[in-house]
Design a protein around this nucleic acid. Structure first.
Lengths: 121, 121, 121, 121
DNA sequence: GTGGTCTAGACCACG
DNA sequence: GTGGTCTAGACCACG
């Protein structure tokens, strides 16, 4: 899986890494149990500090998306918790986005189609 | 309209203000042409610096949501630009949220219902 | 001549009045010697403070565009100084605008046409 | 690139900085991808507060002229949006300047030559 | 070291 | 009274 960083984004690099891995798991591009590159390998590949990759992995671990052990490095967790609901932070963000969509004249149909596509990915 | 600040959020205060006003306009709680509190009034009400409120208002102004004049303070704009599409930043955020919803086991139906409710607000 | 004020413009009202009168003289809509409305009349017509109109008139007078006397009110000056060159402030502004035109990909031809039209008005 | 501030101008300092950088980009003195001084360096060089420089940079960023990242500071953007037309604000300003040129007896030829020179810079 | 955020406080032009 | 500008100074996350 290729991780691409935009160094000028307002989204911090460690979050960009975290987000792309989560999206990779969600889309199936990263399958359960799959081995992730080592912190060192990934940081060299992207050309950034190892601390930044390490921070991303730590967050993914604390969120329950990956497991790390000294022997095997990091792997996608086999059984990710299926709470069945969005975090309140995500709900807030979603509410804001819906508001901005409405205010920008986005049609409900188009919005639904967009979600449909994203969901299918 | 009541604006409530979460001082522990990582969302900066000026953005929290900006977001709540945008959501207020979108929901109709703030109607076109409606007077917003003055910078000074709002800053005292929330208990924060005037500069912070001023920054929120300037962003809202630059985004075309409000108008300011020296005599009367700030008002919701009558004709807000309707581009008809989401910003790429919002699209990215939405894509991330959809991924996290799927990964958390949120059902597509429930997600749609959530959007429905938010849209209706 | 109709003067229209945008109360939400960043350009202060007294300057909007001043600018529109200067443009009126330049276009010939206001002819040399023509009587301007009294401060009072204009302020009532526009619905703003008399001090604001008065300030506009004082600037126009100091710039040599109009003459005022207690008896006849304000009139467009018969012989406006023809220095033959732009003020350095206007030159700076023009230089900035040209820069922004180039940077926005405006074609020199289109820019020239725009000037042509404005000059002809 | 040298940035010089006129502290007696009525153009706010942050706008003077913004304008000079835009003109530098337009003239080619600042090339695409070029590194700008850090907020701290520039504020010390000019002898003004970091907030003021920061405001200029944030405006340039929101206008799409520069990019900032936490590691390297600010850079001129490689691909600046080419809308192909002037902002209405700039058009209004231009119209006013043309009027004042005519009224001051500036000859159309001389005005065109001035534009020519500015465009060539 | 970098930009980003926030404060307390001051002063300004405009109206 | 209103928004706008600016300062000195502090603290923060990111890398």
């Amino acid at each position: 899986m290729v991780i691409s960083i935009n160094e000028y984004s307002d989204v911090p690099i460690y979050l960009q890494i975290r987000n792309q891995i989560v999206m990779g798991i969600s889309s199936g591009e990263l399958s359960a149990g799959e081995q992730l590159p080592t912190v060192r390998a990934l940081s060299m590949e992207i050309g950034i500090n190892t601390m930044t990759v390490s921070k991303a992995y730590q967050i993914l671990k604390s969120e329950g998306y990956i497991l790390t052990d000294r022997k095997n490095g990091a792997r996608v967790r086999m059984e990710i918790d299926q709470s069945g609901h969005l975090s309140s932070r995500n709900k807030d963000e979603l509410r804001r986005i819906v508001s901005e969509a409405k205010i920008s004249g986005v049609k409900k149909d188009d919005f639904d189609k967009m979600i449909e596509e994203m969901w299918g990915e």
